[in-house]
Structures are given as C-alpha cells and as structure tokens.
Design a protein around this nucleic acid. Structure first.
Length: 717
RNA sequence: GGCGAAUUAGCUCAGCGGUUAGAGCAGCGGAAUCAUAAUCCGUUGGUCCCCAGUUCGAGUCUGGGAUUCGCUACCA
C-alpha cells in the first residue's frame, strides 16, 4: 500500500462556550479516523483551532474586564484540556487569532478582490447609539411579535417558539446597553458567490461524486436547476468596534467569520508546518495530490461545501477532497436540555469520574457515514459498554492471564498446534465463514479454499476508512463472542486441574491472549488509552494495524491488573444530577456552528447592479396593466394583502407583501402593473397567480401605476 | 406551508428485491465457576407505521396517508 498524505480537520469550536457531549461526537469521530489512518502507516496531520473572533467575544471580555486576548487564551486552555481528557489528539490545536491565519485571510481576500469577486453594498443593521456599535441579531431583545413574551432574542421566541427577524420585535432594546437600537446603514464587503465562476465551479464540484449522497442532494437543492441561480453573495465584513482582523485596504472594517474561521484550518496547519518542517504547499497548492478532509456537523454544510470551496478555488488553492458531515447528538431521544440534565459538558463528565473511553466506544458503536443524528441513551450506554467492553473483550485477558502468570511464569507458549493457528488465522486474518459451523471452527477444523490472507483485516479497515464504525464494532464484537466460545469449549480451568494437561493449557491460554491482542489492534483507534495499557500488559511495542495478523509466542507478559471498570448506573445518575440546572438557562450557547450558520438578513440593496440582459430576456416577462378590483386583509397574515386583479381577459388572485404601506380600501379601482406569466405560487393563505410591481428601499413601498388612459390587459413593453 | 430524513422485538439498532426478518441489552430456563457477578447453551418476544400498486417474489421498489425530527418559509 502506498503511503498517503492526509490533512484532516474538525470544525472550530467557538471561544465563547464549553465543549459538551454534542461537540465530542465530531472530535471523537475524527480522532478515531485519524488514529486509524496513522495505524495504517500513512502521513496524517490533524489540526484544529478555536474560532476566536466576533462581537460576542469582544463583549464578554469587556464584561469580565479583561482583554479579548486574555479571554480566548483562557478558553483555549479549557478546550485543550477537555479534548485531551477524551484522548482527542490533535497534531496542532491553535487559534484563529494568529499571524498565520491573518496572513491567509488577507491573502485569500486579496486574490478574490483581484479576481473581481469582492463587491460592496450598503447594509442596514441595528445599531446601539449608546455603545456606538452595530448589534448582531442575538444582542437585540424585545417582545415577541406573536405572543408578546418579554425579553426574547432577535431570532426566535423561547415562550412560543415562533421564528422571526429582529426587525419584527416589539419594543426592541439592545442587550448590551439597554438603549433603543436604531437602524443604520454601512458599507459591507461581499464575496460574490452568485458569480458564474463560483456557480459553475460548484455545480461541477458538488456532483463529482465524492460527497455523501445526502450532502450532494442538499447541494443540488441549494444550487437549484441549471437555469437558475439560487446562491446569494455573502457578507464578509463587519464594522468597528469588532474583535478580529482589520481588512487591509479598508480601515474600520473587519473580516467577518467567513473569511477567518475556515482559514483557521490553514493557519493551524501552517503553524504545524513551521514547527515540524512540513511542506505546506504540498498540501494546499492548486494541484496538490495530498488529501484534505473536513469533518463537520450537518449544520455548517452549506458553508463548507459551497462558500469555502468556491473561495479556495478562486484564490488559487486546492479544494477539499471530501467533506464528512455527521448528524447531531440527542440524549435519551431528545435534544440536550439543561433542565433535564442532559446538557452535559466534557468537563462535567470527566469530573464525575466517568471514563472517556466509555463514551468513545459508545459513540463509535453508533456512528456511521451518514448525516443521521445519533442518540446517547444513557441506560443503553451503560449496558452496552459493560457488556461489550468489560464482559466480552477485557474479560478475555482476565480469563487467561492468571494461568499464564501462575503456571507458566508469565511466558506464552513457544508454538501452537496447527488447529490452533488455524483458529486464530480464520478469525483475524482470513475471514472464513464461521457461521457455517461455529463448533467445527472453534475446534480448528474448517475447510475453505482460496481464502485470501488479510481479508478480515482489510474488511475491518475498509469499514473504518468509510467511517462505518458501528459496523466495524459489530464485526469485532462478533469475533470476541467466538473467542469466548473458544474459552468455554476448552475450559482452561478444567485443564488446570488435570495432570499432564499443562501443554494443552499453555496453548489454549496463548491462543486467548493472541486473540485478545488482535482484537486490541482493531479497537485501538477507538480505545487508544486502553490499547496502551494492553501493550504494557502484553509487554509489546505500540500496536499497528498489521499486528492483527502476527502471533505472539515464547514471550513474557506482565502480571494482569484490571484494565477497565464497569459503569455503575449510579455514576450516570450523578452525572445527570450534576448537569441539571433548575434555573432557566442563561444565555444560549452561541457555539461556532450556529455562528457560521447564521443567515444574512438585513441586507439592503441600495446599489443594485444587475447584469445586462438581452431584449429577448426582457420580452419573456409578460407585464400587464391590471385593475385592482378588490383588495382585502388576509386573516392571520402580518404582511400580505389579497388582491384581485383584472387584466382584461381574466381575473387573478395575487398576494402582495404591501400591507404595511397600503390600506386595501384605497387600492380598490386603482390601476397598477403586474407580472402575468409568473409561475403560480402556493402560499400559506392560497395560490398567488402573479406579482404586482412596487418600488422600495426597505423603508418606503410604492406601487407602480400607469398614466391616464391605460386599459387593463395592455402589454407593457 | 415547502423540502428532506426517519418509523423493524420492551430498549438501542442491523438488514434495503429472493429461502422460516437479525444482533446486543432487557426477560425466562439451564450449565459453568478461570474471570472485576464477567461466560456458555437453550428460550420468550415482531400484521418490519397504515393503505394501495409494481413483481413469480417487498421491511426492501412506486404512489398516497399518519406520526416524529431536521432545514426552510407571509418573499410571488
């Protein structure tokens, strides 16, 4: 097998919150994959970093009376401690607030700008006149427009669950100063994701066949049909005051998350390269043959599969080999909840004395290559870990080791009878069909020709490679069951009591411990710490993948001491109790993922610069003079009016979002202009069969009207 | 409202066109006692959400419905 060069990343956690069990799904999934690849002997680099920029960090630092730098340094320490606690082993864990990240942010921005892919536009946002700063959505509070609940955030209501824009809030106020926010426009920079260079590239890239099928479907949805352009440009700047990187040629403007967080992958790797003498360009240059994988949550797929590759492509860098998106974690079938005690932080789990490898094992047993959510069922968690890990796997060592140390001075047998070798080979090397006759197999009698060596190791390796950890562990536990049957069949405890059976006993126990060693190889990516302890117990060098096939003979092992304990259900209860908050949850965790996923509302197009279209394009639009024969309010709609339009030949029903500007009574009888051949759209309140034309800049709204003499149905050209 | 995903034993999940639907846990009966009460054998338990269709044959494909969960929605 040729040696691969692989760079792997996990998503960047935001430096304003603790790592919890939900985060750990991703880091554990990635870490298992990385450890597996390293055991295969490939050159693998696993990098990550804290996502450190943004208004929330700036404000939190202020409220704590420290600098943002001090805050992010402290949080980074906590994060690194938590990851290390769960044996997540990065080759470099860094910060986006680094000279390396700044370098690549500026570099990419500069190249995109040269390519004409950066544009600017005025954007209107809420502004805190006291604090003199623009406010992100979540820093605006007010009364819910639906139910009137007080002190709700700008995106959705915790009382009734309604979703809305911050502009919809009644009596809004700034969560920072309490002042009434005002709307204020300012110039923002945009990455032109809607540019045909991006769109065409993305169409090709997302359908090239490497993405998960679910992800590719989602991409198709986002990109739309070949003749439409559903992508919008992305806001990449924020105004001072802001904690981040100032844009080089634009004083007072800072790079927003899109242009520094993912670039943090590059920054962190650059640092690693500088420290270790690795060739950065070999991994990132346009025609790189090295592999690049991003492990992410499904919530930030849009960003990683559209925005990020488009940016890299147009800045002259390589694009990711693949994006591996996973689902979310639920606990006991429901979203993690502080009041139920299922919002469990990494720190809390470890402080309660739970073994991190229990969780690694359980997650692995549930993980596959899809974006499906996985459920941490706490009862199942204890049962599964106790049964599989302790009862079946570890118990094997415990059953055999005593005889080896007491009867044979800690030394394994020097050789094995052919049937015994056959048994081990069939289990771990050749992959024979055990189910056909398990008893024959255990007794070392099976006949199966043409079973290639290494099929079992390759089979399990392929499952790891494809991130089908659950399937891999099922296979491994199946093998473990067979070994336990083997023990039961040969009954070493009886051999030990019989005279003249020493050789037999020696061999049986040697087989068991060799099986245990091979199982440990297969489990090592999931259970690195336990594997290390096993290596010490067996007195061997660190296990690599190929060791699953080798035999350990005539070798002295260390005395056995127990390697892992069972989960006591009381520990789970204690953990849930310790995590239960009776108080209402304070600030919701603004973790990085949400920050990335935030949509760009509030964009006001003051400078529309439509591309040129041909006269043919224009004539496709059937514009007609229409008389408003009826206009009425729509029950339950906040913004819509229901219009009945006469266009000479027929009448049309159109729903128009003009309630805020017009009284329906005054519209009746008026002439206006409508798009007559717009595809009918089913809306919440009925079918809308066209569109009326109105001018507006986000503040006022002005319906178009033809001059005197025009008749309903006249074509506009 | 739109789009997507899910729905298989008490629980967590496999199986995704082909013999009597599987595993682990839980339950029940037995064996064993080397092992941190860990193991082994046997066994109970399922109209594979519902309805229709395609097929020689359907948890498995198609259409419709129900429920749950995501994403997205008063912009036509």
């Amino acid at each position: 097998m040729s040696k691969r060069k692989i760079l792997v990343t996990s998503a960047l956690p935001y430096a304003n919150g603790s790592i919890h069990l939900g985060h750990l799904v991703e880091y554990i999934q990635t870490d298992i994959w990385v450890r597996f690849q390293k055991m295969q002997g490939h050159e693998v680099h696993y990098v990550c970093a804290d996502d450190t920029h943004g208004t929330p960090i700036m404000l939190r630092a202020q409220s704590e009376g420290i600098t943002p730098e001090a805050l992010i340094a402290r949080v980074q320490k906590e994060h690194e401690r938590d990851f290390a606690g769960f044996h997540v082993e990065f080759d470099n864990y860094y910060t986006t607030h680094s000279p390396e990240t700044r370098h690549y942010s500026e570099d990419i921005y500069g190249k995109l700008k040269t390519a004409g892919l950066i544009t600017s536009r005025a954007v209107e946002q809420f502004y805190d006149p006291v604090k003199q700063m623009f406010l992100p959505d979540r820093f605006i509070k007010g009364e819910c427009p639906k139910c009137g609940a007080k002190d709700q955030y700008g995106d959705n209501c915790e009382a009734c669950g309604a979703a809305y824009a911050p502009t919809d809030l009644k009596n809004p106020y700034s969560a920072v100063s309490g002042a009434v926010p005002v709307k204020k426009a300012s110039e923002h920079f945009f990455f032109k994701l809607s540019d045909s260079r991006c769109v065409d590239f993305l169409r090709a890239w997302t359908t090239s066949g490497t993405l998960q099928t679910e992800a590719a479907n989602k991409m198709r949805e986002w990109l739309g049909e070949a003749d439409e352009n559903k992508l919008s440009d992305w806001d990449i700047s924020r105004d001072a005051p802001y904690f981040g990187f100032e844009i080089p040629d634009a004083p007072g403007k800072y790079f927003y998350v899109w242009l520094d967080a993912p670039v943090g992958y590059m920054g962190s790797f650059r640092k690693l390269c500088n420290d270790k003498g690795i060739d950065f360009d070999e991994f990132w240059q346009k025609d790189s043959t090295a592999e690049l994988y991003h492990f992410i949550g499904k919530d930030i797929l849009y960003f990683h599969a559209l925005f990020w590759p488009a940016m890299l492509e147009n800045a002259g860098y390589r694009t990711p080999t693949n994006i591996y998106a996973h689902g979310f974690l639920t606990v006991n079938g429901e979203k993690m909840s502080k009041s139920r005690g299922t919002f469990i932080t990494a720190e809390s789990y470890l402080q309660q004395g739970l073994n991190p490898e229990w969780l690694r094992y359980y997650y692995a047993a549930k993980l596959n290559s899809t974006m499906e959510d996985i459920d941490l069922n706490l009862e199942d968690f204890a049962a599964r870990v106790n049964s599989d890990l302790v009862g079946k796997y570890i118990n094997l060592a415990s059953r055999a080791a005593g005889f080896i140390s007491k009867r044979f001075d800690g030394k394994l047998a020097a050789s094995l009878a052919p049937a015994r070798k056959c048994f081990l080979e069939g289990l771990f090397v050749k992959s024979v069909n055990i189910a056909r006759d398990p008893d024959e197999f255990i007794q070392g009698r099976f006949t199966e020709e043409d079973v290639p060596d290494g099929r079992r190791t390759k089979y399990i390796a392929d499952l790891y490679e494809q991130r089908k950890y659950g399937e891999a562990l099922r296979e491994i536990m199946y093998l473990t069951d067979i070994v336990n049957k083997f023990v039961d069949y040969y009954k070493p405890w009886e051999l030990a009591k019989q005279n003249g059976q020493d050789g037999e006993l020696h061999e049986v126990c040697t087989v068991i411990l060799n099986a245990f060693k091979s199982l440990t190889v297969y489990l090592k990516p999931v259970l690195p710490r336990l594997a290390k302890d096993v290596e010490a117990f067996l007195n061997i060098e660190p296990l690599v993948w190929e060791d699953a096939k080798t035999l350990l003979l005539d070798h002295t092992i260390s005395p056995y001491s127990h390697l892992i304990t069972r989960i006591d259900p009381k520990q789970i209860t204690a953990l849930v109790e310790a995590s239960t908050e009776s108080l209402k949850p304070a600030t919701p965790q603004p973790h990085s993922q949400q920050r990335h996923a935030q949509h760009q509302e509030n964009i006001v197009e003051t400078t529309t610069q439509p591309a040129t279209i041909s006269i043919d394009d224009f004539t496709k639009i059937d514009l007609r003079v229409a008389r408003i024969v009826n206009a009425e309010h729509v029950e339950g709609a906040d913004k819509l009016l229901k219009l009945t339009l006469d266009i000479g030949t027929e009448q049309r029903t159109v729903f128009a979002g003009i309630k805020s500007a017009y009284d329906p009574e005054k519209l009746k009888g008026r002439l206006t202009v409508m798009v007559a051949n717009l595809a009918p759209r089913k809306m919440k309140f009925g079918l809308s069969e066209g569109m009326v034309l109105a001018a507006g800049d986000g503040n006022g709204l002005y319906l178009l009207g033809p001059d005197e003499g025009a008749q309903p149905g006249m074509r506009i050209k």
